[in-house]
């Protein structure tokens, strides 16, 4: 081996050694579990003396016949559709407002960002109090206006909406930070040039600000979609999926199947569905959105 070759070899070894810790952790906690889950979903759950056996797509067939799975999936779709557009719209609105020339905007930014830095468990407990029947905040305010008492979290009709509101409140401030960062990158000269041409603020927003914010919107959108399938802490604290699975989301259902009923094989199959959904969104973003969004 030439001196040059051995030096390159040494450099390669160095490089590999440097990425080894991160790579090992990734494989151990991300790649291996994914593959193991995928394989696991084709086996039955071991019960008592009966060991786990290969059952093919039986777990997936069971899923198709499982009414709770379909309810949870539609709950999750409803939850995503309820949170994503509103939280993004709200984030954009707040960012534009906070970016403007107003007094005390530092405090305002902080106030909007607070929901994001608070631990979700604490947040869920606060909202739990807001929604409490009889002496909760909303009940007290509504009863002052003579509205009859209502059990927000105990009713199948309102419980998911309640969770959506909490999620919006939590997410909008977080997304606002990204919009704010993007807005601050924009030269104020653009707005001035438009003002001299006589463009109204709405026209400027529609024709300039919004298109220029498109990359941020895409980023936020992907995050919002992932979050809508990932947010589970407030379900655990506030409703435990009830009443009658009306507020159960896909991830929470997986948790229940896997760690309450200990049907790990079925849970594995459900997990694969969740992963497939997220992969679909990611691919969709790469193939379709990316090209339209970037103006550079």
């Amino acid at each position: 081996m030439s001196a040059d070759g051995s030096r390159r070899f040494a450099a390669n070894v160095h490089g590999w050694l440097l990425v080894l810790p991160a790579a090992a952790l990734l494989v151990l906690f991300t790649h291996y579990p994914t593959v193991a889950t995928f394989l696991r979903s084709f086996f039955s759950t071991a019960k008592g003396a009966r060991g786990s056996a290969f059952v093919g797509v039986d777990n997936y067939r069971q899923m198709i016949d499982d009414p709770i799975f379909w309810q949870v999936l539609s709950n999750n779709a409803y939850f995503a559709l309820g949170t994503i557009p509103v939280s993004i719209g709200l984030a954009l609105l707040m960012a534009i407002w906070v970016n403007g020339r107003i007094a005390g905007k530092g405090w305002l930014r902080l106030a909007y960002f607070t929901p994001t830095v608070l631990p979700m468990i604490a947040v869920a407990n606060i909202w739990l109090f807001f929604y409490t029947p009889q002496y909760g905040l909303f009940e007290q305010v509504l009863s002052a206006f003579g509205v009859p008492a209502h059990n927000f979290l105990g009713s199948k009709d309102t419980v998911l909406t309640c969770l959506i509101i909490v999620a919006i409140w939590k997410e909008a401030g977080f997304f606002m930070i990204f919009y704010l960062a993007a807005l601050q990158q924009m030269s104020p000269n653009l707005a001035e040039a438009a003002a001299i041409e006589g463009a109204s603020r709405w026209h400027f927003f529609r024709r300039v600000t919004f298109p220029l914010l498109m990359p941020t919107t895409l980023f936020v959108l992907v995050n919002a979609i992932i979050n809508s399938f990932r947010l589970v802490d407030h379900v655990v604290v506030m409703t435990r999926g009830g009443p009658d699975n009306a507020s159960s989301l896909l991830l929470y259902y997986i948790y229940e199947v896997g760690f309450r009923y200990w049907d790990s094989a079925y849970a594995a199959a459900l997990t694969m569905v969740l992963l497939a959904l997220l992969a679909l969104f990611a691919v969709g973003q790469f193939l379709f959105m990316d090209r339209k969004v970037h103006y550079r």
Partner: peptide, 14 residues
């Protein structure tokens, strides 16, 4: 009733 050219040009990049 005036127009202005900015030092940074302020062209709309998109």
């Amino acid at each position: 009733h005036l127009s202005m050219v900015f030092q940074s040009y302020a062209l709309f990049p998109h």
